[in-house]
């Protein structure tokens, strides 16, 4: 039998799925053990048990100076920035993308501008944001917005253009105005795609968030990682990295389920 026709069973698939995770963990544990055997003070690859211990301390113990648990403060601060940035970008991307996709006049005016704008490296304008908006929350949210909005606009406008023209003609023969076509035909048809695009842009959004927090912040997941880097506190860094990964994975999962729940007609292509 050809290999392209062989499929693993349920149990085998589960094992195969866990295999790379287990392999990574074992490789790390072995490396850590080897280094610690030579130098028990080694900070580069802390033992898994040490990381678990640190993680337990981080999520339960309050900071001595402020009396607050910094881990949750950092998480809250970062998620607030990320959520705000992604939400603003999604709404902007949706509205602009719909306008560009639906109206030839807007398309003529904006699509060239957007494609040039999307070539500006967002991190290159970060200093400008710090200068203009100061070092507070606004500049961090703005970086996330600037980083992912051009992609969302281009993706959604293209998706509107991909809608079969038959549907727009049909709507017109049913007496629909431009407003009705935008609200009842184009908008619902691109909503699953919006969720999918947001899922795809969550990665870059985290990147921009951590970059801006690393440079200037007084709290946040990215800030903490770059702060403890000075003490080579790999156990803290790794705890935060695992936590960020877990959060990103959960958001992705939640958005996918949301799309399936809200738009059951969209079928497989929205996954």
């Amino acid at each position: 039998m050809r290999w392209i026709n062989r499929t693993p069973g349920r149990a085998a698939a589960l094992c195969l799925m866990l295999l790379p995770f287990a392999a990574l963990f074992i490789a790390y544990a072995l490396g850590s053990e080897a280094r610690l055997a030579v130098n028990p003070q080694d900070k580069l690859l802390p033992a898994p048990s040490k990381i678990a211990e640190t993680a337990g301390r981080l999520i339960t113990t309050a900071d001595r100076r402020s009396g607050e648990i910094l881990f949750w403060n950092d998480t809250f601060a970062s998620l607030q920035r990320l959520g705000l940035g992604v939400a603003i970008a999604a709404v902007t991307g949706l509205v602009t993308g719909l306008a560009i996709g639906l109206f030839p006049y807007v398309r003529a005016a904006a699509s060239g501008f957007v494609s040039v704008l999307s070539m500006v490296p967002p991190l290159a304008v970060l200093p400008i944001l710090f200068i203009v908006f100061g070092l507070g929350e606004v500049s961090k949210v703005a970086l996330v917005v600037i980083g992912i909005t051009p992609f969302l606009i281009r993706d959604l406008s293209q998706r509107v253009l991909d809608i079969p023209s038959e549907l727009f003609v049909k709507a017109q023969t049913l007496g629909a105005s431009s407003t009705v076509i935008a609200l009842r035909v184009a908008l619902p048809l691109v909503m699953p795609r919006l969720i999918q695009s947001v899922r795809l842009s969550l990665g870059p959004a985290w990147l921009f968030l951590i970059a801006s927090e690393a440079i200037a912040a007084d709290g946040g997941l990215g800030y903490r990682i770059f702060l403890v880097r000075r003490y080579l506190a790999m156990d803290v860094i790794l705890t935060y990295v695992i936590w960020i990964t877990l959060l990103a994975f959960l958001f992705d999962f939640a958005l996918r389920r949301l799309s399936q729940r809200l738009y059951p007609w969209a079928g497989e292509d929205s996954l």
């Binding site: 709507a171 049913l174 007496g175 629909a176 105005s177 407003t179 009705v180 009842r184």
Partner: peptide, 8 residues
């Protein structure tokens, strides 16, 4: 519905 102002 499509003949109304906002389609609803």
């Amino acid at each position: 519905a499509f003949q109304t102002r906002f389609g609803w």
